[in-house]
């Protein structure tokens, strides 16, 4: 059935328009939550998730395949891997300065940066990137293409596939209750 994703996708002016109106707001909200998580409820996990969901919304409006091509795969991989490296990098930097993993006080002592900024780096550069990247990646990986044998399988007609699965189910549904 998923083979039909791109077949059934038809541009809808209504959805496109409202997504065009709403997407900037959700993106801003996600960024606000990420950047302002230190002093108000919210933080990088939530903000990253909302940023990721914004991309999902765009994918629903513009079609999943075009969105995936627009947001190339290497960008996503770079997003996730970059997040993990930034997190690890900050942790190792404090160790290089002679402290423990993520001991932010050292930034203050050695470089004169308040410990808060170390945390913000972790939050914005680390966790938010990882969460947003993983959410988008999981969505595209689950939504995208088909293994060839299934593609031929379902090409006959979607109804037949559903019917076959349904028959099998109802047969066994009868059996298992006895």
């Amino acid at each position: 059935m998923a083979d039909q994703y791109d077949d059934t996708y038809t541009e809808s002016q209504v959805i496109l328009t409202s997504v065009k109106i709403i997407a900037p707001f959700t993106l801003t909200y996600g960024l606000f939550m990420t950047f302002h998580g230190a002093d108000t409820p919210g933080g990088s996990f939530q903000g990253g998730a909302i940023i990721g969901v914004t991309i999902l919304m765009l994918a629903f409006a513009f079609g999943i395949e075009p969105t995936r091509q627009w947001l190339s795969n290497s960008t996503l991989v770079a997003l996730i891997a970059g997040g993990v490296s930034i997190f690890l990098g900050v942790g190792l930097a404090t160790m290089a300065l002679g402290g423990a993993f993520l001991e932010y006080e050292l930034f203050d002592e050695v470089l004169g940066i308040a410990p808060k900024w170390g945390m913000e780096t972790i939050e914005i550069g680390g966790i938010a990137l990882i969460v947003a990247g993983v959410v988008i990646t999981l969505f595209f990986a689950t939504a995208s293409g088909f293994t060839p044998e299934r593609g031929t399988d379902s090409s006959s007609s979607p109804g037949s596939v559903a019917g076959r699965g349904g028959d099998r189910d109802s047969e066994n549904g009868g059996d298992d209750d006895d």
Binding site: T147, E149, R164, G165, R168, D169, N172, D175, D176
Partner: peptide
Amino acid sequence: IVRIYAEYGTLREDT
């Protein structure tokens, strides 16, 4: 689950 379905064509545990 998606892989299982591609392989066996069912999602029911008993089948």
